[in-house]
Design a binder for these strands. Sequence first.
DNA 1: TTGAAAGCGCTAACAA
DNA 2: TTGTTAGCGCTTTCAA
Lengths: 345, 345
Amino acid sequence: MIPVVSAPTERAVNLADVARLAGVSPATASRALGGHPHVAAATRERVLRIADELSYVVSPDASRLAGGRTGRVAALVPHLSRWYFAALVDGLAGALRAAGLDLLLHPVGDADDRVEYFRRLPARRAVDAIVTVAFPVDDAERERLEGLDVTVVAVGGQVGSHPFVTIDDEAAGRQAVDHLIHLGHSRIAMIETLDPEQRGDQPAGRRLAYERALADAGHPLDPDLDCTVEWGGEEGADAMARLLGLRHPPTAVYAHSDEVALGAVRTLRRAGLRIPADVSVIGIDDDPLAALTDLTTVHQPVREQGTLAGHMVATALSGSDPGPGIVLPTRLVVRGSTAPPRGLR
Amino acid sequence: MIPVVSAPTERAVNLADVARLAGVSPATASRALGGHPHVAAATRERVLRIADELSYVVSPDASRLAGGRTGRVAALVPHLSRWYFAALVDGLAGALRAAGLDLLLHPVGDADDRVEYFRRLPARRAVDAIVTVAFPVDDAERERLEGLDVTVVAVGGQVGSHPFVTIDDEAAGRQAVDHLIHLGHSRIAMIETLDPEQRGDQPAGRRLAYERALADAGHPLDPDLDCTVEWGGEEGADAMARLLGLRHPPTAVYAHSDEVALGAVRTLRRAGLRIPADVSVIGIDDDPLAALTDLTTVHQPVREQGTLAGHMVATALSGSDPGPGIVLPTRLVVRGSTAPPRGLR
DNA sequence: TTGAAAGCGCTAACAA
DNA sequence: TTGTTAGCGCTTTCAA
């Protein structure tokens, strides 16, 4: 019986197809594609040409199953809706993509997610590397991660002794507080945030900077001026309202982040106070909105941290040494929200 | 010979383990886990219990290879660094995660990425579904997508006749422009953005709203008041500067997005103009920063769109009908940046 | 209702 | 340098 010519369902091109057309065995084709040694130059070239013509790309699934690599990297990230995390992931995704790696997003925002995530970790073994994105990992979690035999890279923080890319939060905080001190402020309030998820040293760094900068300048530490709230613009606004209710309100405010700072700014404006004439406000991060709102802040290269972390992952996966880690510099960006004090009354 | 108890290297639990402990064949275990019919209730329960005790989770790779599902969904997204995209992805990721699905991030920001991405599409077959995140897909691309035999869902836009979640951009634009008109403005400028990547109907919708609202109100359409710039706060600021240079500057500005609007606000402030006393400004989106800056805008439920899209994907993959699509309502949010006109001089 | 067997696409010994 | 063989962990006919 003559076989009916059926419309070719778009079956994906596979290794066998490439091998057949190149006139070699699948094993040789695999070696050529994988860049392994011991393949004749002519053979390799032929295989690569055929593969390219067919737009062939290995099946990550099959590859992994057979003991190879998946070409996939997981990013553990608390949430994306904040600029900081999103920009970090954006940079990471770009670098991974350029390296031919796929990014799996593993949101572990709340505590339940987190517990469940680590419980199922072994099953998540389908990645070559895990990047913790501004995600403080506790010791038990770290050990689970390490038992997985995957490359671990931290960005926006550190995890054990794995390669990392981050900034020095205490240094950034010092740049901010010292700026206020240099301007002549001494009653400086701090609006610090304590994210339930953000256990870890980042808050410690920015808080430490405040305490040490004041101490170094010989200014007293007034508990009334030390506000800790949840992260967010609205929370920053509330904190500012509380500060304004003090008998001796501050002449300057050091906020944990730009968004928190903007909340404070809103409260001040609504109270009829002028910035920076009446009160100075400084944030940290240099979120794009800081430039739009003329907010003085400390710039940290966020996207770039993600990019560098992506490079590190690619380097590590290619078998090279990514190095111990990188601490990127931050810098003060003076805009229109800070000035010398003139007294609040 | 008595077998030596070897330290168990943390090998992942597999189906065979579960089957063995449950006293059934791998085939039966697979059926039980997969929720297939024709499995004795007692057997199913036993298998599930064992699996749970062992924290067993199927290997997506092996499952897919064997003809099953991957449990993975790809999100095609232009970039993450803007709040809108990030919030959309955040919602999507949350819903997928709740449904036990993994999210693969496929950034296709620039034109090269895009071409390359679609060229290699067949190889990307390792997902069950693809979600286009505010990503206008052209006809050729859509056809490639459809040849892939995966579920396609669009969020923040539409793709062919695939299920979608979006807003009505023209309606949102009307809410904004009509608000200005109702306040009594007639010289209303538009700062529209034309993202090189954002071919598609979203710009059309917001622009159309402007033209129609003015026409309906009987106000003339002054080409001088129609600015088109690239997306961004700085670009919005530049556009505003140009508008201020006109012989008859506008009394109100309708911006394509909140970030663009904030750029305009900065220019106005720096020019010594008061908002809204001298000039009214309205944006669209209700980015969190709009609340912090007292910007009047039109709210669209961004995160929720992502969440709903995730539900749709889960529904479709479970074999149910996700329905044709959803258009979510937007609403005007009046804050402090709009008021009746008083003339500019 | 259950089990046996085949095979998804690939890689990595081991041979040749 | 290349080919042969044997799985990776799972799902799915087909047979019992």
